[in-house]
């Protein structure tokens, strides 16, 4: 696990693998509220001339942005941490009502080596909240799973039209370091 925990700002290979899986699936718009676990993808999205990266003030903006992008023919992914899932609840009604494809990658907080107990309530509720709003939940706990599920989730979202979330377990990311 050392390679997955060495750098909370994100230089590990699974993070590259996840980003490349989304890109290979045609995702070229990344909307995000920053999280250390997404730092690598965010940096790569900003550096990629073929990709648009949009920083949000709150996560539900990304749900609406993704639906607008799809209405215009572009594939978007929302990167957030589990605390942001609660912010998205009502806006996920747009995904259901319009039967939009939807793809989000969620870094989990409050479940493993969490130093901040205030992360735990929303972390615990995250899968139930997503499922309640019609989003299929996949969970990755190992680097290989993360890359594989990112690939499959991208196809589920944009080929099958299934709203899907990939939860990236906190043990992939490790304790927050400053």
């Amino acid at each position: 696990m050392a390679t997955t925990r060495q750098d909370a700002t994100g230089t590990t290979s699974w993070q590259d693998g996840v980003y490349e899986a989304l890109r290979a699936g045609g995702v070229d718009l990344f909307a995000y509220v920053p999280d250390a676990g997404h730092a690598r993808a965010i940096r790569r999205a900003h550096a990629d001339p073929d990709v648009e990266a949009v920083v949000l003030t709150t996560e539900e903006e990304g749900v609406a942005l993704a639906c607008g992008a799809w209405a215009g023919g572009r594939r978007a992914a929302l990167l957030m941490q589990s605390s942001g899932v609660g912010n998205c609840i009502n806006m996920l009604g747009l995904v259901q009502s319009g039967r939009f494809p939807f793809l989000t990658l969620v870094t989990m907080r409050g479940e493993w080596e969490e130093f901040n107990p205030w992360q735990e309530p929303m972390g615990r509720a995250t899968p139930a909240v997503l499922e309640a709003m019609g989003v299929t939940v996949l969970r990755a706990t190992t680097p290989d799973e993360a890359v594989d599920l990112a690939r499959r989730a991208t196809a589920m979202a944009f080929e099958d039209g299934t709203p899907v979330a990939v939860l990236l377990s906190q043990q992939l990311i490790g304790r927050k370091v400053w």
Binding site: L29, E52, V54, E61, G62, A64, L65, A66, C67, G68, A69, W70, A71, G72, G73, R74, A76, L94
Partner: peptide, 9 residues
């Protein structure tokens, strides 16, 4: 925000 997504697309 939906407008922003559409404009970027």
């Amino acid at each position: 925000m939906m407008g922003l997504g559409l404009a970027l697309a």
